[in-house]
Design a protein around this nucleic acid. Structure first.
Length: 856
RNA sequence: GCCCGAGUGGCGGAACCGGUAUACGCGCACGACUUAAAAUCGUGUCUCGCAAGGGAUGUGGGUUCGAUUCCCACCUCGGGCACCA
């Protein structure tokens, strides 16, 4: 045994793992555990230290589960469709497929060099036709159920590049490439009706174990709110003089029968329509002084003939429509609007006629696209009222439910969530598998024609009209209708990069299946659904197949929500057994560069894991990243501190070396066993006080590390192992079995070094030679050590003695000693007496095994 | 503006359920080993004070025998959402 050479050891151990396939998950074998990380986008920059953090954390969990006897599925794949690859292809002329191949090769090599225990036999790639066949297939199921539909919606249009941009490509309202301000333009887009699942996506968060911040962020995004829908009748103004006088003299009663009666009057020939508003504050109905419609509201066009200032209004609407989302909703944007002159709305609560306005601060796609304005209670309405000199009146509040009922409205639930814009005018994505037939209209491809492969193109840039590059390949576009065999054209849009990642966790279960997206039997196994469960149907309102899913906070409202939506849809089609895909979700914080800034190429502060592995080794990098700080928080990278983790690894190595070369006294040489600890190898005689203390410390550490891994407190787990290593190195006597237990709990963190030492120790273990036991193949398949309850209890503890809450002395006590005796001891203590100084003792508080507080 | 999260040494951070604040690591200083250096090991390292002792967990209050922990107000930073009626 020689000096610790991480390069040699790690290479050797990794080759051995590969040969023996020890991380392969086997279907239908024993109790399963499914741990998952978000599969990375294989960018040209290679693996980031941030990826490493998440992969290592779940690797630790997965390794511990294996040692606990679970059949663990810890898979990996590539979320490879996406813009950076496509942009790189445009710039270099290289084929996206080739770029992706190169990048995934790099990522794979890097993950392997980190010693992550992925099951490489299940690797998937979203750009592989064998994979996206099923992405397209699921899309067609959405289509068949009417949940995938086409709609004219506004997109971000860059007037200089003459292309439509995805929201991700618009930065501060400007085109990411040329910096031109983008405009809104109407375009026919594919949509997925996620809003149909809004209620369930909100409610079912109760069924899963997600961090509170993730749940609240999703709930925020879904934006459920309960309110009232109330109708305002629109009429030509009548009795305007009478109304004005009413307005100024009306008393402040809230329960006004004559006002309600007034409602009937308005159903005259002046009636023009009904304006439905949504409000969460129906209680303020008596404070309404005007109503506002979104400029895009359908009713506006219908009312136009009756509006006196229709030219001005039309002009106003045109201007608003041209504006981008940012211009319209940007920060501190001043609200603009225009009154629809010549018509009035009637407040159903008191029959008052109020003016009707349209304004940019009312959104067409939320609620009913119209609001009742109560400047007294709403700051936005107040701003607007002040600007346009609209009345602001104060009226008493009434009961929401009561008033809603009284005015003939109803209580409703609304969501902020909007349907998902599912098409991209891009090349590097899954083609949408439908054709437009002149005769039959939109026709989906049949399953046997899937996958609809992405064709090769010469240019990846968009066409002149802003369509996908696919639109330029007439050979591909012009096809036959699957239904009537007549002429048809393919859809040329592709899916967003969120498509492939919405169901990938299911494919890992059965990655090579050619006939189904996943085999239901395998899915049931990996979801822990037994035949018995199937009969009882008790499993449905649970989450699975994934037991533990770790990923970044940045995916909380997009990927995580989208994949929950797809899963629920598949559940409704009876294709997956449970309503939720992920039982438990955790999120890690970002790793930042020095000074707490994001790592970026332009700042030159990007840390390449390859360099760290080369210099310090994968084990050191793994320990370092886990030791950085609390896993769920962000962390600041500091290359200078890595040395601490390396020292720790080397320290453990030195202890191992000492044992292997027999430079230490080993309890094993003592005969008989130890009755107290039940360890057959340890004799009572050999167990000196110091070595018993070491044994106790070991068992406490086993307990702590086990618990800390479960709660992802990796930093404190490592800290406790550092303490143990220091104590072991100091100790004259080290029990080989005890040291092996230490190696086992360290193994998930530093899998290479511990594997090597474990092997060395096993080979050198003379008892095993005597027993002719088989040499254990890998520490990672050994059993997670159990701690001894008796050994984690202390017989003696140090407690503090406080006088008036201040620590004045410390004493050792036996745990078995009674409270009275301990208090007596404390009151006799010299230092304590000095502070009491004859004063009257009012109270003595004893906290078991902690402290005594004497109040004087 | 709203919703989360967080403020502890020179730095990253510990502290269970309200019970000895500053574990562990980095850095720094000194010492041992060495011809020397590196590595390693040891000692020290919040602050004021010679000491006895006092003061410190963003700030100011409160509850309590006792508060980093609970409550109220405020300040700062990070993240998310943002004209959502």
């Amino acid at each position: 045994m020689k000096e610790y050479n991480h390069l040699k050891i790690e290479k050797k151990i990794q080759e051995n793992w590969k040969k023996k396939e020890i991380y392969k998950a086997k279907d239908f074998k024993g109790k399963k555990y499914y741990s998952l990380i978000e599969f990375p986008y294989p960018s040209g920059d290679g693996l980031h230290v941030g990826h490493v953090r998440g992969q290592v954390a779940m690797d630790i969990v997965s390794r511990k589960r294996r040692m606990e006897g679970y059949n663990v599925l810890y898979p990996i794949g590539w979320d490879a469709f996406g813009l950076p690859t496509e942009n790189y292809a445009i710039k270099t002329g290289k084929r996206p497929k080739v770029i992706t191949k190169k990048n995934t090769d790099t990522f794979r090599k890097q993950a392997k060099s980190l010693g992550i225990s992925f099951d490489w036999s299940r690797e998937i790639n979203t750009t592989d036709p064998a994979y996206y066949k099923w992405t397209q297939w699921i899309f067609l199921q959405f289509y068949k159920k009417g949940l995938a539909y086409k709609a004219e919606i506004p997109i971000n249009w860059c007037p200089r590049c003459k292309i439509g941009l995805a929201n991700e490509e618009v930065v501060d309202g400007k085109c990411e490439r040329c910096g031109e301000m983008t405009e809104r333009r109407m375009k026919n887009q594919w949509m997925l009706a996620i809003t149909k699942y809004a209620e369930r996506l909100d409610k079912d968060l109760d069924l899963v174990d997600y961090p509170e911040r993730v749940k609240s962020s999703q709930r925020n995004w879904i934006g459920k709110s309960e309110g009232s829908e109330i109708d305002f009748k629109i009429t030509l103004p009548k009795n305007s003089e009478k109304l004005l006088s009413r307005f100024s003299h009306s008393n402040l009663t809230t329960d006004n029968e004559s006002n309600i009666a007034y409602k009937a009057e308005s159903t005259s020939q002046n009636f023009l329509g009904v304006l439905k508003v949504f409000t969460t504050r129906a209680d303020t109905l008596f404070g309404v002084t005007y109503v506002v419609l979104a400029p895009e509201h359908d009713l506006v066009q219908k009312l136009l003939p009756n509006i006196l200032n229709k030219n001005e209004v039309s002009k106003f609407i045109d201007e608003i429509k041209k504006k981008s989302e940012l211009e319209r909703t940007g920060e501190n944007k001043e609200k603009i609007g225009i009154e629809l002159k010549g018509i009035k709305a009637t407040n159903p609560a008191n029959g008052e006629e109020v003016p009707i306005w349209i304004a940019d601060y009312v959104l067409a796609n939320y609620g009913t696209g119209a609001v009742m304005a109560v400047p007294q209670h709403d700051t936005r309405d107040r701003d607007f009222a002040e600007k346009y000199n609209l009345p602001i009146i104060d009226r008493p509040l009434v009961d929401i439910q009561e008033i809603t009922k009284k005015v003939g409205g109803k209580m409703v639930t609304k969501f902020k969530l909007r349907d998902w814009v599912f098409s991209r005018q891009r090349y590097w994505g899954e083609p949408i598998p439908l054709v437009n037939c002149d005769k039959c209209g939109l026709v989906p491809l049949s399953e046997k024609d899937l996958p609809l492969k992405l064709p090769e193109v010469k240019k990846y840039t968009l066409t002149e009209t802003g369509e996908s590059p696919l639109a330029g390949i007439s050979k591909w576009v012009n096809t036959k209708c699957p239904k009537c065999k007549g002429k048809a054209k393919r859809e040329t849009d592709t899916m967003p990069n969120w498509a492939g990642s919405s169901w990938y966790y299911l494919r890992y279960i059965d990655p090579k299946n050619k006939n189904k997206f996943v085999d239901p039997k395998k899915l049931n196994y990996w979801s822990d659904v037994s035949n018995k469960d199937l009969k009882a149907k008790s499993y449905k309102l649970k989450a699975g197949p994934v037991d533990w899913y770790n990923g970044g906070m940045e995916h909380t409202t997009l990927h995580l929500l989208y994949s929950r939506f797809w899963h629920k849809f598949l559940y409704d089609l009876k294709l997956v057994p449970m309503v939720e895909p992920y039982k438990k979700r955790t999120s890690h914080g970002m790793i930042l560069g020095a000074g707490g800034v994001k790592m970026s190429k332009s700042l030159g502060n990007v840390v390449n894991p390859d360099d760290i592995i080369k210099t310090y080794g994968a084990d050191t990098l793994r320990v370092y990243e886990m030791f950085l700080g609390p896993f769920e928080d962000g962390a600041i990278w500091n290359t200078e501190s890595i040395i601490g983790s390396r020292r720790f690894i080397e320290k453990v190595w030195r202890i191992g070396e000492k044992i292997v070369t027999k430079q230490t006294n080993n309890f094993r040489n003592c005969a008989l066993g130890d009755k107290r600890t039940g360890d057959p190898h340890v004799s009572e005689n050999c167990l000196s006080a110091s070595s018993l203390a070491l044994k106790k410390l070991l068992h406490k550490t086993i307990k702590k590390v086990g618990e800390d891994i479960e709660s992802m407190h990796f930093n404190t787990a490592i800290s406790s192992m550092m303490i143990l290593a220091t104590e072991m190195e100091k100790s004259e006597f080290i029990n080989t079995d005890d040291f092996k237990k230490f190696l086992q709990i360290l193994a998930p963190f530093a899998p290479h070094m511990t594997e090597e030492l474990y092997k060395q120790l096993t080979i050198n273990n003379y008892e095993l030679k005597i027993k002719k036991e088989k040499i254990i193949s890998s520490i990672h398949l050994s059993s997670w050590p159990k701690y001894d309850e008796n050994l984690i209890k202390d017989d003696e503890v140090k407690i503090a003695i406080q006088v008036n809450g201040k620590v004045r002395a410390e004493i050792m006590i036996q745990v078995s000693e009674s409270e009275e005796i301990i208090k007596e001891k404390a009151l006799k203590n010299e230092a304590v007496l000095r502070f009491i100084n004859g004063a009257e003792i009012r109270k003595v508080i004893y906290v078991k095994n902690r402290l005594i507080n004497i109040v004087i």
